[in-house]
């Protein structure tokens, strides 16, 4: 535990000193903050735009940070041979890998938390204004096209789910880092993320009702079975439609994310164990 903690702390500190990460964070907060200037345009549209910009930024920049941090995690250590001085100390490979993972995860999540706070501040101020303005117009729902039911709770939960989503993505990029050079690993991680975003689409492609052949069914179902379903961590629709999302449902999502992360980290460990350093 001690070793995992030490490696994690060192990784966290090192990551926070990376300029490109700081740049991404600043940029993300600027974009989220820029929606402060959003003015009344059309009932519903600005509220949706506000949410889309905020949640979109958190997820998009979270994704960039998770991937670009994760993919260099192991390959850099091997390339620069810093790993030699660590693995010859009483640190097992599993401890090292977990330490690196938790260190980068803490970095990703703390970055996202800062974005989340920025968004929540903007939303608490601007969102309420837009909702009041919509109501003043006397339309039956405060904002046509977007429901305001449970909106504050749902946004908090959506940010929470994006944390889970990026936990899985960090695991994917760390795993890729144990297998490939960082450029390859980055391409791999983005690919997995994008395919995972459209997992349901692949499932529907596999449906024979669509006229898919037997070979195609096998391929698409295999993709659907193996690829992490990143799309399940997307709560945009629940927000727009004002669906109440219970804690048990949220717990299931988190559970699924954790199982994904454990599974991926296990693969990462098995690959890393045999890797020559």
């Amino acid at each position: 535990m001690q070793a995992i903690y030490r490696v994690a702390v060192a990784t966290f500190h090192e990551a926070w000193r990376r300029r490109f990460l700081n740049a991404i964070l600043v940029f993300a907060v600027l974009i989220i903050g820029s929606s402060w200037t959003l003015t009344y345009l059309q009932p519903g549209a600005e509220l949706k735009l506000l949410i889309d910009i905020g949640l979109g930024s958190i997820r998009f920049f979270g994704m960039l940070i998770a991937v670009f941090l994760g993919v260099r995690l192991i390959s850099d250590e091997i390339e620069k041979r810093t790993i030699h001085t660590i693995l010859t100390k009483p640190v097992t490979r599993a401890q090292f890998l977990l330490g690196k993972f938790f260190g980068s995860l803490a970095t990703v999540l703390s970055n996202m938390a800062l974005m989340g706070i920025a968004f929540y501040v903007v939303f608490a101020y601007k969102g309420s204004k837009f909702m009041v303005q919509g109501a003043a117009q006397g339309s039956e729902s405060a904002s046509p096209g977007i429901s305001t039911d449970f909106i504050y709770g749902n946004i908090a939960k959506a940010i929470g789910l994006s944390f889970v989503e990026m936990t899985v993505l960090t695991a994917v990029s760390v795993m890729a880092s144990t297998l490939f050079s960082w450029i390859m690993a980055a391409i791999f991680s983005f690919f997995v993320y994008f395919v995972g975003q459209a997992a349901d689409f692949f499932k529907s492609l596999a449906n024979p009702a669509r006229g898919t052949g037997f070979g195609g069914q096998i391929v698409f179902n295999a993709i659907y079975g193996i690829i992490p379903h990143f799309e399940v961590f997307d709560m945009r629709e629940a927000i727009i439609k004002g669906t109440y999302v219970g804690w048990d449902t949220l717990g299931m999502h988190v559970g699924l994310g954790l199982v994904y992360a454990i599974l991926i980290m296990l693969v990462a460990f098995l690959a890393f164990m045999n890797r020559e350093v």
């Binding site: 349901d200 399940v232 629940a238 669906t243 699924l256």
Partner: peptide, 25 residues
């Protein structure tokens, strides 16, 4: 073992209206 959990989550999302299915046909 993950598949039942994943199916359960997807099912719940549809039932609760957290997402709409991708059109099949």
């Amino acid at each position: 073992g993950l598949q039942p959990l994943s199916n359960a989550v997807n099912y719940r999302r549809l039932v609760l209206g957290m997402k709409s299915p991708t059109p099949l046909t």
